[in-house]
Simulated scan of single mutants.
Amino acid sequence: MAQIAMHPRSPEPVHRLVAAKLRPPRPLTPLVPRPRVHALLGAAAHRSFVVVLAGPSGIGKTVALTQWAATQARPVAWVTVDARDNDPRRLWPHLAAALAGATGDPDLERSAAGPEPGSAEYVAALANRVVAHHARPILILDEYEHIVERDIHDRLELLTRVCADRLTLVVAARNRPALPVERLEPAGRLARVSWTELRFDADEARDLLTTGYGLPTALAPTAIDTETIVRELRDREEILDALLRFALGFDLKDRELFRTAFTPDAEFDFRPVAAELGLEVPVMVGVAAIEAVHFNPDVRLDTTHAVSNARIGFIGDRARLTALVEAQHLPTGDHTRHLLLKNRYAVDLVRTGAGWAMSRLYVENVWRTGDPKVLIGA
């Protein structure tokens, strides 16, 4: 028998750096200056080791951070995160390269070149170099919602712990990131910036119309008109966001986000859809009952919800929202079966101290495909 030559296993391929990830996206249109938002982010970064900016897609997190970063005297390192960055061998070299590029110190990148990227030794070496550096860089991680690996969260916590006040980590995500940095909150070293602070006020809305869209100043709304317009747009945005929080909270298994969508005594009437499926579901009364049904531990589902065709009407502190919601359900661990529903939602909402919340939902089915038993875990 012919001999087979044996060779050592080749090392794992090194992930190439993607230069586009290391800079903010370039705006397609001129941006309206927003010193109010710059001051808000600046104050948070000045007093904190970690700044978290969480909010829905499209609310303006990336634009706000891009504008703010351009005003900073401190060096700013930027990394746009994607799902492939759950591999620490890909993420951590990008972080090191971003810090090296921002500070002009190539040793920041070289100092961690020996250990396995993402290992405790790698992160410690990088952190020690940051601490020894004369600059106090700001590291911005945008679209951090893609990171689900616990080890990466833990290593970032190690980075902030070793660097302390020599580094400010700014994390932007669609949902609250799972970084274990709560220890910083009692000392005021963790800042959470609400996405609602990014909404345009009346002056900014007027600047957007005149500067951003070229509307002649003479035709721009008056301050009173602008305030009315902005208030109505905010209400419409928050009304729709209540339904989106319900859908996203359910899909992400985020109970905290899910609960914010409802008033404490909310009613959820799913009976018309259940009847179509040959099932029996009582009206759910109270947010605890609604949560118990949707997060039933005996029914493990992977779901996605898409909301469309929303219509909103409101008077004072009460509103009515109608929308189509497409809901895909697949048993966790068995995606060979599914139940896809297109449902029509009629939602009553009320204004609360924390914004708009749903007080009653009535759901009817438009069409469906798949196995109804999926919905009950059978």
Rank of each mutant, 00 (worst) to 15 (best):
R344S: 12
E326T: 15
P137R: 02
A127Y: 05
I4P: 01
R259M: 10
Q67Y: 02
K342Q: 13
E157G: 09
Y122F: 13
A187S: 09
G313T: 15
R90T: 13
R84Y: 12
L257V: 09
E149C: 02
R320L: 14
H38Q: 12
R23K: 14
I59K: 02
A83F: 12
H329T: 03
R110F: 10
V287N: 05
I312Q: 01
A205T: 04
A5D: 02
M1A: 11
I224W: 08
V18E: 15
E121I: 03
T332S: 14
T304H: 11
A191C: 03
K253L: 13
H134D: 13
D298L: 13
K373Q: 10
L340N: 12
V287T: 15
E204L: 05
L341P: 00
G101R: 06
P264K: 01
W356L: 11
P56I: 01
P11Y: 02
D207Q: 09
D251N: 10
G278R: 06
P8C: 02
T80P: 00
A39E: 10
P11W: 06
H7C: 11
R259D: 10
G118E: 03
A275I: 14
G355N: 11
M1I: 00
L126G: 00
L279I: 06
D269G: 08
A220M: 13
A223F: 02
T332K: 14
V81D: 09
S57C: 04
E204V: 06
A187Y: 08
A20F: 01
V130L: 10
N128I: 05
L141K: 01
L167T: 01
L208T: 11
A205F: 15
R174K: 06
L340R: 12
L340T: 13
